[in-house]
Write a protein that binds this DNA or RNA. Structure first.
Lengths: 151, 151
DNA sequence: ATCAGTGCAAACTTTTTGCACCGCA
DNA sequence: TGCGGTGCAAAAAGTTTGCACTGAT
């Protein structure tokens, strides 16, 4: 159930922070758990609303920065340039994003391992030919989500 | 040679603007040509520096917005959240990005058509299973560029 | 007692906008 | 002459930071 996923994430986040000698405070627990329950990367404003004033925006940003430094979460930017945060792949697993071009929703999507490794192999070959040493890749699949299509 | 690529882009950009009933002014020519010569998406600040004061920043932003609206160029955001502009795929062709995780450079990279269509097919299947209708995809290949590796 | 963590308010960066002016059609 | 385009300066949005306070170890 949902609670145990949040529990697992909380435990893993605590371990990552301890390794760096950083305290696992209530604010950090709160943010880690909130992200554990999200279907995709969250903007600071969204998290702030979710947490309903439990954390001032500046503290939230600082919390996010700490968690990012400890590799608990990863920061990226959506099409509007707004920062979005989600659990690091070491906690969430490798995945990609479905981006609705109509409403801007960003949702996580997993790719089955055989397909994923096929893609990884192709991508690495492209990078090598261009003189890059590939360390990873990000794929955003643009399209329209169900609600935007039926609306 | 370089000039003819800029010329082709300028002509195509002019056509796109004319279709929308928008004037193709010197400022717009300038920006279109500057982007035609770039190896990857450019930040507004970079373009402003390239144009050496020929265009105030606010006018540059407005020019970029006009060109985006006319589908001459596309806007995206780099890892730092800064807006970057490049020629639309209808002018530049479908391509992806090599992103150097060390220096932040973003460089265009083409993928050979067979590989590209393999990837497109895989990606569309993933989207369909998730209830999305895919209209496109973006792949950022993260790695280290030659200069960052040898430095 | 010390030092990391917190909250408020102010600063900063990037991008957008209001308004007056200019110039081509 | 009308209207789109331009430039300056000011504003808006998102994010970061200085500083004083709080609380855990």
């Amino acid at each position: 159930m949902a609670a145990s996923q949040a529990d697992r994430v909380e435990q893993a986040a605590g371990a990552l922070l301890r390794v760096e000698g950083i305290r696992f405070t209530p604010a950090r627990r709160l943010v880690a758990r909130a992200l554990a329950g999200a279907a995709g990367p969250q903007a600071a404003g969204e998290l702030h609303a979710t947490l309903r004033g439990l954390l001032p925006l500046s503290s939230l940003y600082r919390t996010l920065a700490v968690l990012e430094r400890a590799r608990v979460l990863a920061k990226e930017h959506d099409a509007a340039g707004v920062a979005r945060y989600e659990l690091a792949e070491s906690l969430l697993g490798h995945h990609h994003h479905l981006v609705c071009v109509a409403c801007g929703e960003v949702r996580d999507v997993g790719i089955d391992p055989p397909t994923e490794s096929t893609i990884a192999r192709l991508v690495e070959a492209v990078a090598r030919r261009a003189g890059y040493r590939a360390t990873g890749h990000r794929i955003d699949i643009e399209g329209t989500c169900v609600s935007c299509r039926t609306a």
